[in-house]
Write a protein that binds this DNA or RNA. Structure first.
Length: 280
DNA sequence: CTAGACATCCGTCAACTCTA
DNA sequence: TAGAGTTGACGGATGTCTAG
């Protein structure tokens, strides 16, 4: 990482300044190329304009990729299953994965299927597929989970047939940062014995009258904010990943253009030598 | 061993761009 | 045009290196 020492005066050399320098470098080298090749002038003007305006890195890189074969395009989706705990087999694509205080993994798929994985068992063996009652009719034989979106103490609860309750721990982010990264920065869940004497088969629901109370509104606002922050967190991660890729792309482009430039200069020197009138 | 400098990563905010 | 997405900027946390 040779550039770190070049930018000691900047607090965030890679994130904020380095890509700009590379852009200039690429533009300069490309300019040199254009002086030898008259074609592509409009193209480079357009490209420079695009680069100076700084739209998304994905766009820039993809545009560069379309011009230059061999330059990889930025993928729309993340590669290599980030944040998926190894114990979860992909029986259904989980949208949320949680780790309970007992070490169990809970994956909630888009279809409303909940998978519970025991850390002790390996792979599919430890998986239990459950279906939430508010996500459509469960398939025959499926275990029913009573799901309450919000309980009185502001936590999410899943009522599991074994008279256990999976409770979302909203306030405390118990998981350390490395753990949060592994679980996709999800809130922690605990499996508890039910605190209230709810009979099985009864779905908890907020009464319509209390739905618009101040507390509910505040909770809704908090929930929205949390969601926004979570999305932005992920977006920032993705943005940084794209920027790194973009910088890498620019670096390789600089290298290629420098070699190309050197070759052209050598060629020019050779031609000069051949075409020059011999004095002796 | 320790303090300080620096690098790197991350979360958040705000401003901007894009799109339905 | 509202809402979602993107990204620069900032500050905090943590790791690494080095001089004393």
């Amino acid at each position: 990482m040779w550039w770190h020492r070049h930018n000691l005066c900047f607090s965030h050399p890679v994130e904020e300044d380095y890509s700009g320098e590379l852009e200039k470098k690429v533009a300069t080298i490309t300019e040199t190329d254009e002086s030898t090749e008259s074609e592509g002038v409009i193209d480079s003007h357009k490209r420079r304009e695009i680069l100076s305006q700084r739209p998304s890195y994905r766009k820039i890189l993809n545009e560069l990729s379309s011009d230059v074969p061999g330059v990889p395009k930025i993928e729309e989706e993340k590669s290599e299953g980030e944040g998926t705990p190894p114990k979860i087999a992909t029986m259904a694509v989980p949208t949320s994965i949680y780790q309970t205080s007992t070490g169990q993994y809970i994956a909630i798929a888009q279809g409303g299927t909940i998978q519970i994985s025991n850390p002790g068992s390996d792979g599919v063996q430890g998986l239990q597929a459950l279906t939430m009652t508010n996500s459509g009719a469960p398939p025959p034989g499926a275990a029913i989970v009573q799901y309450a979106a919000q309980s009185a103490d502001g936590t999410q609860q899943f009522f599991v047939p074994g008279s256990q309750v999976v409770v979302q721990d909203e306030e405390t982010e118990l998981a350390p940062s490395h753990m949060a990264a592994a679980t996709g920065d999800m809130p922690t869940y605990q499996i508890r014995a039910p605190t209230t004497a709810l009979p099985q088969g009864v779905v908890m629901a907020a009464s319509p009258g209390s739905l618009h109370s101040h507390q509910q509104l505040a909770e809704e606002a908090t929930r929205k904010r949390e969601l926004r922050l979570m999305k932005n967190r992920e977006a920032a991660k993705e943005c940084r990943r794209r920027k790194k890729e973009y910088v890498k792309c620019l670096e390789s482009r600089v290298a290629v253009l420098e070699v190309q430039n050197k070759k052209l200069i050598e060629e020019l020197e050779t031609l000069k030598y051949i075409c020059s009138p011999k004095t002796d």
